[in-house]
């Protein structure tokens, strides 16, 4: 850790004034991690040196870049609306009708960051899950992120990123300067530290795995290993959500693809013969609805 107390004090004061985000003691790691790319780009020896040069120059563009780096969160509520719309309109109704009413639904939000995805899923289950028992496992490599997820408290700026106002007032309460997620949603989310790049600890069988914008950070052999491990913990009838720029194609061909609107979902192929169109013939731009999905879409 190279961040000096003076540099941390300057940055936390800047971010508090500019973005109303409080970086309390213990956030040195976050500042270091987020500002390192800026420091490198500026040719500074380290983050402390970068911050002290900024302190001297007061350059407004650089100051804004620092605030941005510390306030931009990769994950945000419903901003990438499509996967959640597909989950709500198609996947969830299918799961509810194809599993016994007493069976708990198991969903995994892998690399959950500060928990927005896990709570977005929880909101959809609370509002559209017909009272079905469900557990969302939120995992991350960072214990700091897991603590944040567990706390379920978000700043004004974080809550502003793509959470519809009607859902915010339904599922959150004001707690000082923060917004606190409801106890009902918090009770649905369990956190666990999991390193995706190494063998998984014992996990339940999942109905749905959200592994969005994670694979992009790994090399091809690791991607393949992760996809294979995910297959082992995903129900044969389960669903895998990947990020918009990610695919199983050419990495692990044991997955079938299904396209809903413009969104592609992945399912274990061999285990559900006929449920997935063959990859080679699956049209990329048209909607493919297997019979039972079509039934769900028609409200049956």
């Amino acid at each position: 850790m190279t961040l000096s107390p003076q540099a941390f004090a300057y940055v936390s004061d800047l971010v508090r004034r500019e973005a109303a985000i409080v970086l309390g003691p213990g956030k040195e790691y976050l500042v270091e991690a987020r500002l390192l790319p800026l420091a490198r780009a500026a040719g500074a020896a380290d983050v402390s040196a970068y911050v002290s040069s900024l302190q001297r120059s007061g350059n407004p563009t650089q100051r804004m870049a620092v605030v941005e780096a510390l306030t931009t969160n990769e994950t945000s509520w419903f901003r990438d609306g499509e996967p959640f719309e597909v989950f709500r309109s198609t996947v969830l109704p299918e799961l509810l009708s194809s599993t016994p009413p007493t069976r708990r639904l198991n969903i995994w939000s892998a690399a959950c960051s500060s928990g927005q995805e896990a709570y977005t899923i929880a909101m959809l289950l609370a509002d559209h899950g017909q009272g079905r028992k469900a557990e969302i496992l939120a995992s991350d490599l960072s214990t700091e992120m897991l603590d944040r997820t567990k706390a379920g408290a978000y700043s004004q700026l974080e809550i502003g990123r793509g959470l519809p106002a009607p859902m915010m007032v339904k599922h959150f309460r004001r707690a000082g300067t923060q917004w606190q997620v409801s106890d009902q949603l918090r009770a649905m989310v369990r956190t666990q530290r999991i390193n995706l790049a190494t063998p998984f600890p014992p996990l339940p069988v999942f109905d749905v795995v959200f592994l969005r914008n994670v694979l992009i950070y790994f090399d091809a052999p690791t991607k393949k290993a992760i996809l294979q491990r995910v297959r082992q913990v995903l129900s044969p009838q389960g669903y895998l959500f990947l990020g918009g720029a990610e695919t199983t194609l050419g990495i692990d061909d044991s997955w079938g693809r299904t396209t809903i609107g413009r969104f592609t979902l992945y399912r274990p192929q061999a285990a559900t013969p006929g449920a997935n169109p063959p990859v080679a013939t699956a049209p990329l731009t048209t909607t493919v609805l297997p019979p039972r999905w079509a039934a769900a879409a028609e409200g049956r």
Binding site: A19, T72, F78, G160, A165
Partner: peptide, 19 residues
């Protein structure tokens, strides 16, 4: 229909438009 609290970032404004 929507509610955006000042101060806000351009991204937060775009998010609301998207919603």
């Amino acid at each position: 229909h929507e509610y955006l609290i000042k101060p806000f970032t351009p991204e937060a404004f775009s998010d609301k438009l998207q919603l």
